[in-house]
């Protein structure tokens, strides 16, 4: 549970590149001010494997496989506020560029019929998450409360968004902070 007066925050990356997390770190010295207000649960920065009860969950990346769905569900279950951060989480983004390709044909070509393959086999280890036939933005799988677009969103946009949210204001990003690219 959170220290008194602090909000507990969890973050993760699904089908993403961690670029949004890098942008979060890009708020630089403002991180210290942030840490006075929040403490972290599961994030790539901590060693916590599963998300516990949190005030805010921040997720980058789209949903491309079964494991992504499980993690997303865990976040939704535990976080009072769920935020989709970055183009992939908001729109499917780069991973969703595979959506016009047939998954079966893709797997077949990459693992079975690609010239030069010897004894190719489609990986079937139960530890490997199965891919979905298409990549989806978060809001198509769970209810999402807020969205921060951008690839990645700028550090200033993330800072403005989080400070608004922590202060209890509806976050508003004005010109120059809302960017889709």
């Amino acid at each position: 549970m959170a220290e008194a007066g602090k909000l507990r925050v969890a973050t993760t990356s699904l089908a993403g590149c961690f670029g949004c997390h890098m942008s979060l770190l890009d708020i630089d010295e403002r991180l210290f001010a942030l840490l006075e207000k929040v403490e972290f649960d599961r994030t790539p920065l901590t060693d916590i494997k599963h998300c516990g009860p949190c005030d805010i969950g921040i997720i980058e990346g789209g949903v491309c496989n079964a494991e992504n769905v499980e993690v997303l569900r865990e976040f939704r279950k535990n976080c009072k506020i769920l935020i989709a951060m970055g183009a992939c989480a908001v729109t499917g983004g780069l991973p969703a560029q595979r959506n016009h390709l047939d998954l079966g044909a893709c797997l077949q070509e990459v693992y079975l019929t690609e010239p030069g393959l010897v004894n190719g086999q489609i990986p079937n280890d139960p530890e490997l998450p199965l891919p979905l036939d298409q990549v989806h933005p978060l809001h198509e799988v769970v209810k999402v409360d807020y969205f921060i677009p951008g690839c990645p969103p700028s550090a200033d946009a993330i800072w403005k968004f989080l400070t608004d949210l922590i202060a209890g204001r509806t976050p508003r990003l004005g010109h120059g902070l809302i960017e889709y690219d």
Partner: peptide, 18 residues
């Protein structure tokens, strides 16, 4: 895109047709 910025559109919100 610029209309989205100016109107404060943060997400398509709907299911994407792809």
């Amino acid at each position: 895109q610029a209309l989205g910025y100016d109107l404060g559109v943060m997400t398509a919100g709907f299911r994407h047709f792809f």
